[in-house]
Design a protein around this nucleic acid. Structure first.
Lengths: 206, 206
DNA sequence: GTTCTTCTGTAGCGACCGCTAAAGAATGAA
DNA sequence: TTCATTCTTTAGCGGTCGCTACAGAAGAAC
C-alpha cells in the first residue's frame, strides 16, 4: 500500500534524476562534479535536490548503492556462478574489460576512479570507496582460497596475494579505460594477467 | 659567469620551494592542491609564487619535470641497464614496489595519480600526464620487442599487449600504495605479475 | 472554496578558488 | 645619495563552491 501524500507532489521522477546524477559522478568523479553540474544534469534546482537527496555526500552514497547494484554485480555473479576459482577470476577480468568500455557509459569503474584525488574534506567518501575495493579483494581471496581447499590450486598458493594482484589489474584496467583504451586492449590485459595463474603453462589461453 | 641582479633579491631558495610544491602536489594531486596550500607549504606569499613560477599550471609542469628526473628515472634505468627484457621488466616492477612505498615520501606515483579526476578546466594537465604514461608503455614495448628480436621471447609475443599489461599493473600498484598497501604486498603483486611472462613455468620466481 | 502541507524558483549566504593591483622594502648602479 | 629595479606584503578582485532562507505555486484534506 502506497503512502498517501499531503502537499505538492514533486515535479520530477526521483529515479530518473538519480540516474542522471549517477552518470555525472561516474563521468567526472565526486569532487569534480559540482552541485551546479548535478542540477543541470538532473534538470532540477538546488533546493529540490537537497529536499529529495540530502546533501552532496548523501546523494553520492545513494548513487554508489545504485551503481554497485546495477553495474558492479558482475564480480559477485562470476565468483558465485563459476565452478572453479580460475574460471571465476578469468570471467571477472574478461567481463571487466567489457564493462569498463561499454559504449554509452562512462569508461572505467566508479568505485575505482570517482575519488582518487580527493581533498581531506571528502575523506569519508574516499574511505568508503576504498573499503568497497577492499571488500572485493576479500571476496576474491575467499573464492581463491576455496579453490585451493578444493584442490584446484597448489596448496602453497597465497590466496591473498593472488587476489591483490587481480585487484591491481582491475584498477589498472579501469584507469586505462579512462585513458582511452578499448575493449580489445583491456581483454588482452586480462588474458595476459591470467597467464600468472598458478600452474599455468606458457601455451594457455584465457 | 653568473648574471648580476639589479633589484631586491628573493628571500627564499627557489629549489627548496619547488621541492615543497612537489611534495604537496604529489600528496594531494593537481586540482586538490590549492594556491593557499602551496604558499603555506612553500613558505611564501602568493605574489612571490607567481613571480617565481608563473601560474599554477606552469608550476605543476616544472614540478613534473623535477619529479620525473628525481623519482621517475628508475624505469628508464632498468630498461637501459638490464641485459634481457625479462630482467628489465622484472626490475621495473620490483623497484616500483619500493619506490611507491618509500618511507618519507607520498605513496604511489605522481604521474599516475595526480590528475585522475580532473575537471575540464585542467584537461591540459590531465592530457600531459596521460601522454607520459603512454610514453612509458612505448618504452616498455620497445624493450620487449628488442627482446623478441634477440630471441629471448617467442616470436609470436605481442610486445604491445605485454607492455600494456605491465603498465596496468604499475597503475594498479600505485593506486594500492595510495590505498595503504605496503612494500611487501606490492612486491608480491609484482612477483605474481611476472608469472605471466611468456615461457614462464609455474615454479618460477621473480 | 479554505486550509494545510509540501515542493519549486529566486536569490544569495559565507567560504574558498586562482590570481593580481598597489605600495613599501631591499638591493645594485650611478 | 639618489635612482632604478625587483621582491615582499597587504588587501581584494571576480568567480565558483556547497548549501539554504524565503516566498510563491500546487496539490490533498476538509
Amino acid at each position: 500500500m502506497t503512502t498517501r501524500h499531503r502537499g505538492r507532489p514533486r515535479s520530477f521522477d526521483r529515479d530518473t534524476a538519480l540516474e542522471k546524477a549517477l552518470r555525472a559522478f561516474w563521468e567526472h568523479g565526486y569532487e569534480t562534479t559540482s552541485i551546479a553540474d548535478l542540477t543541470r544534469a538532473m534538470g532540477i534546482a538546488a533546493p529540490s535536490l537537497y529536499a529529495a537527496f540530502g546533501d552532496k555526500k548523501t546523494l553520492f552514497e545513494e548513487v554508489v548503492e545504485v551503481y554497485v547494484r546495477r553495474y558492479g554485480g558482475f564480480i559477485g555473479r562470476a565468483l558465485a556462478e563459476e565452478p572453479t576459482a580460475r574460471s571465476a577470476v578469468g570471467r571477472v577480468l574478461r567481463e571487466a574489460a567489457v564493462e569498463y568500455t561499454e559504449p554509452g557509459r562512462p569508461p572505467g569503474c566508479l568505485v575505482i576512479n570517482a575519488a582518487v584525488n580527493a581533498a581531506p574534506a571528502s575523506a569519508e567518501v574516499t574511505e568508503a570507496l576504498r573499503g568497497m575495493r577492499e571488500e572485493n579483494v576479500h571476496a576474491l581471496t575467499s573464492r581463491i582460497r576455496a579453490g585451493v581447499e578444493a584442490g584446484e590450486l597448489p596448496e602453497e598458493t597465497d590466496a591473498a596475494a593472488l587476489a591483490r594482484f587481480v585487484g591491481a589489474v582491475l584498477q589498472g584496467m579501469s584507469q586505462q579505460a579512462r585513458d582511452g583504451a578499448g575493449r580489445e586492449e583491456l581483454e588482452a590485459v586480462a588474458a595476459t594477467a591470467m597467464r600468472a595463474w598458478p600452474g599455468e603453462g606458457p601455451e594457455n589461453t584465457l
